[in-house]
Amino acid sequence: MEESRIEIKSKKKLGDILFENLTLIFALMIVGLVVFISIEMYIDSAESRERFGLGFIFSSNWDPVKEEFGALPFIFGTIVSSLLALLISLPVSIGAAVFLSEIVHKSVRTPISFLIEILAAIPSIIYGFWGIFVFAPFMRNTVQPILQSTLGFLPFFKGTMYGTGLLTAGIILAIMITPIISAITRDVLKAIPVSQREAAYALGATKWEAIKMALLNARSGILGGAVLGLGRAIGETMAVTMVIGNKAQIMASLFEPAYSMASVIANEFAEASGSLHVSSLIEVGFILFGVTFIINSLARLLIYSVTRKA
C-alpha cells in the first residue's frame, strides 16, 4: 500500500503545511506525555529515593507509622502472581489460538473470537468482584484442599487455606490475560504463509506436525504476545487488589495472602499519612512504570518482527 502512494512533488500549499503540523503536534503530545509521566514520577519520588536509596527495593519492612518503607514484598507479590498467571495462561492461550485459527470451521471461528473479544473488554473491577464472591470460595472449598492432599508435601501448597492469596490472584490474572495472548498468537499465525503448512501436508505430515511447524516459525511473535500478557498482569490493579489478600509478606506457600505493587498504591495512596509515605508509594509506581515500559517495548518489537514480514 505504501508503494502506491502518490507523491505530489509540487510545493506544498499553506493548508497542507498547517494541517500536517497540526496532526504532528498532537502526535508529539503522546510522546511528550510519556516523557512527562516519567519525569513527574521521578521528581515526586525524590524524597523516598534520597532517604532509602537502593535499599528500598531490598527491604521488606513497610511501616507507615515508623516511616520505614521497603518495597520487596510488593515486588515479590507482583512477580510471583504475574509469572504464575503467565505459566497457566501461555499453554492455554496457544492451544486456544490453534483451536480457533487451525482447527475449528470458519463459521464457528468468527462468533467465538468475537465473544472472546467482548469478554476481554470486561472491566477488571468485575473480575475482582467475581473473584471475591465466586472464585475465592471455590478455591478455598475445592481447589486448595485437592492441591494440599495431593501436592501438600511441596512448600507451595502448605498452610491455611484462605481462598484469597497468591494462587487465586495468579489464576484470575491468567483468565484476564488469556484473551490477549491468544489474540496475538492468532494474528501471528495468520502471518505465517499457508503454503508452508500445505508443503508439510504434501510431505505426509500430520495436522499437528504442520501446526507445530507454523508455531515454531511464529515463535518470536508468540513470545511477544506472552511478554505483552505479562506486562498486563504486572500492571493489573483492581482484580488483584480484591483477591490477593493484601498482606505485605514473603512466604513460600501460594495459599498465603500477599500484596502487589499496584495494589499497595490503590489501597494506601488516597489515605497516605505523610509526604514520605506518598513519595514511597510514587517510587513503587515509578518502578512499576519502568518495568512495564521495558516489558511492553520488548513485546512490541517481538510482535513487529513477525507481523511486519507478512
Binding site: I30, V31, M41, L281
Partner: peptide, 29 residues
Amino acid sequence: EYSKNVLSTIVKFITDILSGVPSIIIGIF
C-alpha cells in the same frame, strides 16, 4: 497519513507503549 516519516513510526511505538502503561500509574500522574 504521514506514515513515510520515521517520526510516525516512533509515535506509533510510543502509542502502543502508552496503551500498556498500568492505569494506576496514569492516576498517580
